[in-house]
Lab assay of single mutants.
Amino acid sequence: EPEARKIVEKLINNGLSPEDVKRWAEKNNNPEVKKAAEEYQKR
Rank of each mutant, 00 (worst) to 15 (best):
E1C: 08
E1W: 14
E1Y: 12
E1V: 11
E1Q: 12
E1A: 12
P2I: 15
P2Y: 15
P2A: 15
P2Q: 15
P2D: 15
P2G: 15
E3G: 09
E3Y: 08
E3W: 13
E3V: 08
E3M: 07
E3D: 14
A4F: 06
A4H: 05
A4W: 11
R5T: 13
R5H: 14
R5M: 15
R5V: 14
R5S: 12
R5W: 15
K6N: 10
K6T: 11
K6R: 13
I7E: 04
I7N: 02
I7Q: 06
I7F: 11
V8W: 05
E9F: 08
E9Y: 09
E9S: 06
E9V: 08
E9K: 08
E9M: 11
K10W: 15
K10G: 11
K10P: 02
K10V: 11
K10S: 12
L11G: 01
L11E: 01
L11F: 11
L11A: 04
L11V: 00
I12M: 11
I12Y: 04
I12D: 00
N13C: 10
N13F: 11
N13L: 13
N13A: 15
N13W: 09
N13D: 10
N13Y: 10
N13R: 14
N14V: 09
N14H: 10
N14T: 10
N14I: 13
N14D: 14
N14P: 00
N14Q: 15
N14S: 15
N14K: 14
G15Q: 05
G15V: 03
G15A: 03
G15K: 03
G15S: 03
L16I: 06
L16E: 02
L16A: 06
S17R: 05
S17H: 05
S17W: 02
S17Q: 04
S17A: 05
S17E: 04
P18V: 15
P18K: 04
P18T: 08
P18Y: 15
E19K: 04
E19F: 05
E19G: 05
E19T: 06
E19D: 11
D20T: 04
D20E: 14
D20L: 06
D20R: 04
D20V: 04
D20W: 09
V21K: 00
V21H: 00
V21C: 09
V21T: 00
V21F: 01
K22Y: 12
K22P: 00
K22N: 04
K22D: 02
K22T: 08
K22H: 06
K22S: 06
R23P: 00
R23D: 09
R23C: 05
W24C: 00
W24S: 00
W24L: 03
W24G: 01
W24A: 01
W24K: 01
W24R: 01
A25K: 00
A25M: 02
A25N: 00
A25H: 01
E26K: 04
E26A: 07
E26H: 05
E26S: 04
E26N: 05
E26P: 00
E26Y: 04
E26C: 00
K27D: 13
K27V: 12
K27R: 12
K27G: 06
K27E: 14
K27I: 13
K27A: 14
N28I: 09
N28Q: 07
N28H: 13
N28V: 08
N28M: 11
N28K: 04
N29F: 07
N29H: 11
N29T: 04
N30T: 04
N30W: 15
N30K: 14
P31Y: 10
P31D: 10
E32D: 12
E32N: 07
V33I: 08
K34T: 07
K34H: 10
K34I: 13
K34N: 05
K35V: 08
K35E: 08
K35A: 10
K35P: 01
A36C: 06
A36T: 04
A36E: 08
A36Y: 12
A37T: 04
A37F: 06
A37M: 09
A37Q: 01
E38K: 04
E38N: 05
E38P: 00
E39D: 10
E39Q: 09
E39N: 07
Y40S: 03
Y40M: 07
Y40R: 02
Y40V: 04
Q41N: 07
Q41I: 14
Q41L: 13
Q41S: 10
Q41K: 08
Q41P: 04
Q41W: 07
K42T: 11
K42G: 09
K42F: 10
K42A: 13
K42N: 12
K42L: 13
K42Y: 10
R43F: 13
R43I: 13
R43P: 07
R43D: 12
